[in-house]
Computed example of a mutant assay.
Amino acid sequence: MSIEEIALEAEERMEKSLALLSDQLRGVRTGRASVGLVESIRVDYYGSPTPLKQLANLSTPEPQQILIRPFDQTVLGDIVKAIQASDIGLTPNSDNKVIRLNVPSLSVEQRKKLVSRVKDLSEEARIAIRNIRRDANKQADQEQADKILTEDDLETCKEETQSLTKRFESKVNEMAEKKSTEILDV
């Protein structure tokens, strides 16, 4: 593998880690209704766990309410059970056609817990990014041992990987800071 291939592979993997963090942060409550809170909840649909967003139309008609309108009315009870079993802490209200989730305002203590959760998620993402850097550096070391890369190429590759790592870690920090501010300012 060349320096460019190693760097490109590391960058692609770091992008995936960032995308995962983004999805995880969308599921963290902020006190405002957001379909991101429920869209990834898995519902047992004919024996297979299916994301809620594939089974229902999700919307926020009011700032403090999420409306779930199933495409198939027979799955309504399963959706209610899945929401109750999830850890989002919202109680579903069903009228046998739609499900309404009222999102209450968060207390100061709940906000602090959520900010702590955001910090934990962002640290997991930073660890994943550092692991990708380690893997890329190992690959470069192996290529140098196999006489494919010179020592100068090895140094260049490691510097490039380090700059990628710094860039992605700063993006993680930015995302975490934005979400924490969103939680605390509501």
Results as ranks from 00 to 15, higher is better:
31 G>Q: 04
34 S>K: 09
117 R>V: 05
126 R>H: 05
15 E>M: 00
29 R>V: 05
15 E>V: 12
76 L>C: 08
141 D>S: 07
171 K>A: 09
80 V>T: 02
121 L>I: 11
154 L>M: 08
184 L>I: 03
121 L>H: 11
60 T>H: 07
79 I>Q: 10
49 P>I: 13
48 S>W: 12
62 E>G: 08
43 V>W: 11
141 D>K: 14
109 E>W: 00
65 Q>H: 12
178 K>I: 05
81 K>P: 05
65 Q>D: 10
113 K>D: 09
117 R>T: 12
26 R>V: 03
157 C>P: 02
58 L>H: 05
73 Q>N: 00
103 V>N: 03
160 E>R: 15
12 E>G: 05
4 E>D: 11
35 V>K: 12
160 E>S: 09
113 K>F: 02
107 S>H: 02
105 S>A: 09
186 V>Y: 07
186 V>Q: 08
110 Q>R: 14
7 A>Y: 07
169 E>Y: 05
157 C>K: 09
54 Q>R: 10
152 D>V: 07
144 Q>C: 06
115 V>K: 05
114 L>E: 02
19 A>R: 14
43 V>Y: 09
140 A>Q: 06
7 A>P: 02
171 K>P: 00
117 R>D: 04
98 V>T: 12
162 Q>W: 03
66 I>N: 04
99 I>V: 06
83 I>D: 03
186 V>T: 06
118 V>H: 01
31 G>C: 04
64 Q>L: 08
131 N>S: 14
170 S>W: 04
98 V>S: 02
164 L>M: 07
130 R>N: 06
147 K>T: 05
67 L>D: 08
78 D>T: 03
107 S>R: 01
109 E>M: 01
130 R>A: 06
78 D>Y: 07
73 Q>K: 14
82 A>T: 07
160 E>A: 10
137 N>K: 09
144 Q>F: 06
149 L>M: 05
84 Q>A: 11
70 P>F: 02
60 T>E: 13
53 K>Y: 15
96 N>Q: 13
67 L>I: 14
79 I>L: 14
96 N>Y: 07
142 Q>G: 05
130 R>W: 03
133 R>E: 10
136 A>M: 08
139 Q>K: 15
167 R>A: 10
55 L>V: 12
184 L>M: 15
185 D>T: 12
38 V>W: 13
44 D>C: 00
130 R>C: 04
111 R>F: 00
122 S>E: 04
25 L>Y: 11
162 Q>I: 01
6 I>P: 01
108 V>W: 03
66 I>H: 03
140 A>D: 08
85 A>T: 07
163 S>K: 15
179 K>I: 08
23 D>S: 15
44 D>R: 11
6 I>H: 10
116 S>D: 06
45 Y>F: 15
43 V>A: 11
60 T>P: 01
98 V>C: 01
54 Q>E: 14
22 S>F: 07
135 D>W: 01
69 R>M: 11
11 E>S: 01
141 D>I: 03
65 Q>S: 15
